[in-house]
Structure formats: structure tokens, C-alpha cells
């Protein structure tokens, strides 16, 4: 059986908000290591990779690997019924037809349980190799969100170029062009999460669809910083770390010159 108790139930809402615009269903894989999900969007252009490590739960029990196929839209509806301060417990049997969500209010004066039907999802899992990135950019997640939104107002595709001087985001649309350069700032008075850091072994440049990058920024409430990893001619990874728990990562295939 599987049973996991999460003290910060609001975290589940944030995780679901970060994927609900991209996928409509997915297999949550319960394993002794934690709860994970890998799923492609319907156009198979991007890949979501979520990990919530077992250590991040107050209580975690998983005797064997269990794929828990869930409709994300329905899951969002159910988790919305939890208060943002509620403690959430997820429970299911080894071959579940249903998953139970137990919500306990912080003061323990209200307990709710919801049961949701599971579904069988045939999805192919991709093997994402442990990659050494040519360029890694860490920046405030709110700034990345703003930047993607601004770029999307002008064009459909953003070209991201990383050099040791900084990261340049460029786009072109019917009305004109836009360029935004974010420079690594010196580690002065700023808090770590307010800094922009660039690590590169060589300059990298590639084009990506803004529609997807904008969807990824729905994960902004999960982390004060976002990390972009690039390798020439490979998908970009956009990572939001979840403190003491794991991550939400998005991989987006580049646009290639025809």
C-alpha cells in the first residue's frame, strides 16, 4: 500500500497549478524514494518531471512501486477542497481503483476525505540523461516570469543566448522586436535568491516557443529562484526546486532552423 502525509498541503496545490495547463492526465509513480511524475504535453514538445522525495513527507510508506493514473483536471478540483493550511494524506492500495485524500485542518477541528477514481494511462517514459549543462543560469523566478510574459506580448519564439556577460532574450513579432539582457549581479547586499548567476563553459544560443515557457512559469510560487540549463541543440531545462522536497522540471525541445 501507499500512504503519504504532507504537513504543507498547500504545496500540492502549487504543484498542481504548475502542471494543470500543460497536461490533462498523468501517472503519479509512488515508489519508496518518493512520489514522481513524468509526462509530455499533448503536442509532445515538452516534458514535465516532478519529484517529491519521501523524506519531505511527515509520514511516508510505500511497499512497492505503484503507478497512480489520475485525471489532473479532476485532481485539481479535489485538492482545491483542501484548505491551504491543511495537512494532506494520500492513500491507495497496491493496485488502486481509487485514491483517498484526507484533509485535516491545522487545528484538527475539521477532517474531510475524498476518494477519486484512478485511470489506466499508457504513457511512454523517456530517459532523461544526467546532463552536464554548457550554460546554467540561476535567476529570481518572478523576474523570469515577468520576462517570459513581456516577450510573449511581442513574439511567439524567444531566442535565449547565454554568454559570460549575461543572458539575452530576444523575440520578433508583427509589431517589432524586443531584447532583454539579464546580467549576473555581483554578490553584494542582495539575498541569494535575488541574484542572477551565470555559469558557462561556452556560449549557447537557441530558440524556444514562448507559449510553453510561459506555462512553465506557473511554477513560480514553488520557488524564489529558477534555474535554466542549456546544451547546444538539446532541450532547455527549466527547474524550480521545492525546498526540502524535490523539484518541478520542464524540458522544452528547441526550434531548429529549417
Amino acid at each position: 500500500m501507499f500512504e503519504a502525509r504532507l504537513l504543507q498541503g498547500g504545496l500540492l496545490k502549487k504543484v498542481l497549478d504548475s502542471i494543470k495547463d500543460i497536461i490533462t492526465e498523468g501517472n503519479f509513480d509512488c515508489s519508496p524514494n518518493g512520489l514522481s511524475l513524468q509526462a509530455m504535453d499533448s503536442s509532445h514538445v515538452s516534458l514535465i518531471d516532478i519529484l517529491l522525495e519521501s523524506e519531505g513527507f511527515e509520514h511516508y510508506r510505500c511497499d512497492r512501486n505503484i503507478p497512480m493514473g489520475l485525471n489532473i483536471t479532476n485532481l485539481v478540483k479535489m485538492i482545491k477542497c483542501a484548505g491551504s493550511e491543511d495537512i494532506v494524506t494520500i492513500k491507495c492500495e497496491d493496485k488502486p481503483d481509487n485514491v483517498t485524500f484526507l484533509f485535516e485542518s491545522k487545528d484538527n477541528d475539521k477532517i474531510s476525505d475524498f476518494e477519486m477514481k484512478t485511470m489506466t494511462i499508457d504513457d511512454e517514459h523517456l530517459l532523461v540523461p544526467d546532463q552536464t549543462y554548457t550554460a546554467v543560469v540561476k535567476m529570481p523566478s518572478a523576474e523570469f516570469q515577468r520576462l517570459c510574459r513581456d516577450m510573449a506580448a511581442i513574439g511567439d519564439t524567444v531566442n535565449i543566448s547565454v554568454t559570460k556577460e549575461g543572458v539575452r532574450f530576444s523575440t520578433t513579432g508583427d509589431m517589432g522586436t524586443a531584447n532583454i539582457t539579464v546580467r549576473p549581479n555581483p554578490s553584494g547586499d542582495q539575498k541569494e535568491e535575488e541574484r542572477t548567476e551565470v555559469q558557462i563553459t561556452e556560449p549557447v544560443s537557441a530558440g524556444f516557443a514562448l507559449r510553453y515557457l510561459n506555462s512553465f512559469t506557473k511554477a513560480t510560487p514553488l520557488s524564489p529562484t529558477v534555474t535554466l540549463g542549456m546544451v547546444p541543440n538539446l532541450p532547455i531545462v527549466v527547474e524550480y526546486k521545492i525546498a526540502d522536497m524535490g523539484h518541478v522540471r520542464y524540458y522544452l525541445a528547441p526550434k531548429i532552423e529549417d
Partner: peptide, 14 residues
């Protein structure tokens, strides 16, 4: 003109 690649063309299937 740029062409959108699919994600599965970059990663092996498990």
C-alpha cells in the same frame, strides 16, 4: 523559418 522539434526525438524511451 524555425521548426518545432518534438521532445521524444532527444531522449531515449525507457
Amino acid at each position: 523559418k524555425k521548426r518545432q522539434m518534438g521532445i521524444a526525438s532527444f531522449f531515449a524511451r525507457k
